[in-house]
Amino acid sequence: MTQKKYERKAVVKILEDRCKGCWYCVNYCPTKVLVISDKMNAKGYHPPEFREDKEHVCIACHLCELYCPDFAIFVEELK
């Protein structure tokens, strides 16, 4: 099965010090551009990391912003 190619539309910026590691964004991202990272923030949580490759591109749906309970995500659209 070949996955449909999406156009790259945005970059996800994460304010790591606000993140508490619930990973709703990682789970609900429709194109799976966020992954759990190995690094730790000041409170000891693992914030998500923005990862883009050929199959996974951000389509600027802004769903991660809606699900984030900690106001830690900004989706910056590309011009």
């Binding site: 606000r18 590691g21 619930c22 409170k43 949580y45 809606l66 984030c68 309970p69 900690d70 106001f71």
Partner: peptide, 20 residues
């Protein structure tokens, strides 16, 4: 911020929706 609510608490999501 970060607020006092636990990781994954739904109150943050509700506040997010309310402010929007």
């Amino acid at each position: 911020l970060p607020h006092v609510w636990c990781p994954g608490c739904g109150i943050g999501i509700v506040l997010n929706a309310f402010l929007r």
